[in-house]
């Protein structure tokens, strides 16, 4: 297991998922059995598989929750690969029984377990985790330093900031604001995205739009993803014109449109919606 690539089987759009699904097809029963298989790689794969194929089976969910406390699967550096995959899967399965276990994972010694737990808690939408998530911002910017010898900061700040935004944690706004000036661009973007979601103040959406001009391709892709998730509709044209592959633009524009259409008062054929659709049409 490579310490630096925790998500190697969970990258969106990678062809490995279909190859693995075809080559090592599992049944729900087999996947659940495999979660406690003596071959640790089969456990790891089963956890990923249950999330990927959205298996909302009670037994599967209970087995994944138990896997959040796994002690068998360890990396050389002390990481918990199975916990990481179980935490990721539980975010996709939408069962709130996973929340207490995921909150415990926020204290795990493995950065990638904390990151996966924060992401999944944001997806599950249970506000009970807000105090625990907020706790990860303790120490503010001063604590948000790189870990020597590792490719990450002390905490999974991006994931925490985004989750706090998605959970509507308005009380955390003063704690989020300083991160707009964090030296790591992705952390700045995560803060701006969260603050836009929480306040609907255009200045935060505009920050993301303006960052598009001066950044690298990797960062522009990341910005598009943040803009799509922010629901900041005035960004639609900037997304369509960004120097990024069409597939990233399409996903971002769809994110904007989905978020807009999910509002109870949104009309599917309003001018705003049609404007975004015209842009999507042009990128097909």
């Amino acid at each position: 297991m490579l310490e630096s690539s925790p998500g190697q089987y969970s990258q969106p759009g990678s062809s490995s998922s279909t190859e693995l699904a075809g080559g090592e097809a599992l049944t729900v029963e087999q996947a659940i059995i495999n979660l406690s298989h003596e071959d640790l790689s089969l456990r790891y794969y089963a956890a990923w598989w249950l999330g990927k194929f959205r298996v909302r089976d009670t037994v599967a969910i209970e087995a994944l929750i138990a896997a959040l406390e796994d002690e068998a699967d360890r990396t050389e550096l002390g990481g918990y690969p199975l916990r990481r995959n179980a935490a990721r899967a539980l975010g996709k399965l939408g069962d709130l029984r996973a929340v207490p276990g995921l909150i415990c994972c926020l204290d795990c010694s493995d950065f990638y377990v904390r990151e996966a737990a924060a992401q999944s808690l944001g997806m599950l939408g249970d506000r009970a985790c807000i105090p625990a998530l907020t706790q990860l911002l303790a120490g503010g910017m001063a604590a948000a330093q790189p870990v020597p010898g590792r490719p990450h900061l002390t905490q999974p700040y991006e994931a925490v900031l985004e989750a706090l935004g998605d959970l509507g944690a308005t009380a955390a706004i003063p704690l989020i604001q300083p991160f707009l000036d964090h030296p790591v661009e992705r952390v700045q973007y995560a803060a701006a995205r969260a603050l836009y979601v929480l306040t609907q103040e255009p200045e935060y959406g505009e920050r993301l739009v303006q960052s598009l001009a001066g950044s690298t391709l990797q960062l522009r892709r990341s910005l598009l993803s943040d803009l799509g998730a922010s629901g900041y509709l005035p960004a639609a044209e900037a997304i369509a014109e960004a120097a990024v592959e069409n597939s990233f633009k399409l996903i971002a524009l769809k994110g904007l449109l989905d978020k807009y259409l999910a509002q109870p008062e949104a009309a599917p054929l309003s001018d705003s919606a049609q404007r975004v659709m015209t842009l999507i049409d042009s990128l097909l």
Binding site: L257, L261, P268, L269
Partner: peptide, 14 residues
């Protein structure tokens, strides 16, 4: 099931 695709179909109907 997808809101965006559904909205695009409604636009096509219109």
């Amino acid at each position: 099931p997808d809101l965006s695709v559904k909205a695009r179909a409604q636009l096509a109907q219109q």
